[in-house]
């Protein structure tokens, strides 16, 4: 355990557990309690899941688009992955953004025909000086118009927060109904009880209402979130 080097911390841990157990009137060894908590961790029951995001693929995509727009994201749909670069270039041009674009080493991005666009492509994490970045979502959630991104060797997390214009590619087959569906996919990918270093659920561009409750977009994170649905 982390704190075992420090004598004081071990006793703090023991004191807290002892006090929790004293207050609850338990020893921690009671079988039924152990059984109940272990069963919950193993089964992860879903609870109340809203109907809003449910439905077939087309219904989910329609709900996803409507909800993402409510959260001030912009959206475009293209028929094939090969059409993504053209759409990204159009979006940047229309927003008077410079023709540079940073991305991770995600294979799906690497195989797209970026050379048909005038964009200068940069790879790797951001040092805070990039204006535009593109990533591929792990999944998208119809219920709240949310994109889910995971960190990994191909997917720098800095791209989700430092650039002004965040562009996220969502594959049509990755639009799921709800958060619970993303958790199922996470367990398939990382194993039960496992997780990537970071999962970012992102719903619209960054904002703040801290000055007189005036809602403004572009607080510390991206000023714009553009979602390209493809495939």
């Amino acid at each position: 355990m982390a704190g075992e080097k420090r004598g004081g911390e071990v006793s703090a841990r023991e004191a807290i557990f002892a006090n929790v157990r004293r207050s609850l009137g338990v020893t921690g060894a009671e079988e039924p309690r152990r059984f109940e908590s272990e069963a919950r961790l193993a089964k992860a029951p879903p609870g109340v899941v809203p109907k809003r995001g449910q439905g077939g693929a087309e219904a989910r995509i329609a709900t996803f688009k409507a909800e993402a727009e409510r959260a001030a994201a912009t959206l475009a749909e293209v028929a094939a992955l090969a059409e993504v670069p053209g759409e990204v270039a159009r979006f940047l041009r229309e927003n008077n953004a410079p023709a540079t674009l940073r991305m991770g080493t995600d294979q799906r991005l690497a195989t797209m025909p970026w050379s048909v666009t005038p964009l200068d492509i940069l790879h790797g994490p951001s040092d805070g000086h990039d204006l535009n970045a593109v990533s591929v979502a792990f999944a998208a959630i119809a219920e709240t118009g949310t994109v889910a991104l995971v960190s990994g060797a191909d997917n720098p997390t800095t791209l989700n927060f430092l650039p002004d214009n965040q562009i996220v590619v969502v594959l049509r087959s990755d639009v799921v109904a709800d958060y619970e569906s993303v958790f199922v996919r996470l367990r398939e990918t990382y194993g039960k009880g496992g997780a990537p270093r970071t999962v970012n659920f992102i719903t619209g561009p960054s904002r703040s209402a801290d000055i007189e409750q005036t809602l403004l977009l572009g607080a510390h994170g991206p000023r714009r979130l553009h979602i390209v649905i493809a495939g």
Binding site: E67, R70, A71, E143, T144, T146, S151, G152, A195, P196, R197, T198, V199, N200, F201, I202, T203, G204, P205, S206, R207, G221
Partner: peptide, 14 residues
């Protein structure tokens, strides 16, 4: 309906 950023963090950099 959802805050803009809900972030799940597990351990340090892999």
């Amino acid at each position: 309906d959802a805050s803009v950023y809900t972030t799940l963090s597990t351990g340090p950099r892999r």
